Each structure stands twice: as C-alpha cells, then as structure tokens.
Amino acid sequence: MVSGGKIKNSEHRVTTNVSLCIALGCAVLMFSGLQMNKTLLSSTRLMTLLAGYIGSWLFIFLLTAVNNLESILFGKGFQARLIPEVFSCLVLACSACGMVHRVSVTVCILCSIVGLYYINKLSQYLYAAPSSAPISSSKKKK
C-alpha cells in the first residue's frame, strides 16, 4: 500500500511469474482492442490521440512482460537495456498504432517516453541500493 509516497506493506506484491502473465495478458488485450476498434479509433482526431495513448500502455505492458521473462531466465539482477528491450517493445507498440493511424504512432512515442521516465524513476526508488558512503565536507586545511 502506498501512503504519502512510501510503501508500507510489501506482502501484497506479486511474483515475477504472475506479473509476466498479467502483463502479457494486458498486452494482448491492448493489441486486440486496437485492432478490433481500428475504424472507430481512426474516425476523429480525439480518437486517434486515444489510440496513441493506448499504444503507450501496450508498450509499458510489453516492456514489463519482456523484463519479467528475462528476470526469470537470467536471474533477479538482470535489467532491461535501451537498445534490445526498450527499443523493440517501442517498435512493436508503434507498429500496432501504425495499423490504426499514423498520427497515433507519434502520440505513442511521446506518451511512451513519458511513461518510461516515470517507470525508471519508480524503479530507482524501489530497487536502488541505499547509499552508505559518508559525505565528506570540503573544508580547507590551515
């Protein structure tokens, strides 16, 4: 539970296997929702923007699924990198948005970058090792 920016209870977290299944299921639902409502989502400007926003959620779910799969295969300390994982998930999400409308691709890229920034910020907050190095003061000797 999150209260005041701090996580109080860590016993409600799901395992990596469950998170992989949930993220993969949500990614499939986002992709199929984009494809089934392709004509509706490309009908107006607002719906085209909505398709790009949905595509950014597809990117987030794909990246979560890929990272969980790598964590299962390669160990807990494995992290997603920019070039193979993030870029390939972004290309897949933009391809799904491109099937709807080309403006959706631009919105997907912009919203995905913002989402990636906040995911990185949250990840650093939750998983970064606490720094125990002493802070030295810069006083000149006489």
Rank of each mutant, 00 (worst) to 15 (best):
A23P: 14
K140T: 13
W57D: 04
G55K: 01
M99L: 08
P134D: 05
K76F: 01
L49K: 00
L122Y: 09
S88T: 13
Y117M: 01
L126C: 01
V14R: 15
K76S: 15
E85C: 15
R102N: 12
S104P: 06
N67A: 13
N120E: 03
S71Q: 14
V103E: 02
K121N: 01
T15P: 12
L110C: 07
A23D: 00
L50C: 11
R102A: 06
R102S: 15
L41M: 04
R45C: 06
M36N: 13
L50I: 15
A93Q: 00
S10V: 15
L90F: 08
I119G: 08
L90R: 02
C111Y: 03
T48G: 03
L69D: 08
G5E: 02
C89E: 05
L63A: 07
S137Y: 08
G77E: 12
N9S: 14
Y53W: 06
I54H: 01
M30T: 10
M1L: 15
C21F: 09
L40K: 15
V107Q: 01
I109L: 08
N67V: 15
G25Q: 02
K6F: 05
P130N: 15
C108G: 03
I83F: 10
I109V: 13
S43V: 01
I83H: 00
W57Q: 12
G55E: 02
Y125K: 12
A51W: 05
L40G: 11
C108Y: 03
F74D: 05
P130L: 00
S56K: 06
M47P: 07
Y127D: 12
F78G: 09
V86H: 04
Y118K: 02
K76E: 10
C21Y: 13
A133L: 10
V91A: 06
C108T: 04
I109Q: 09
F59D: 03
K38Q: 13
I135D: 07
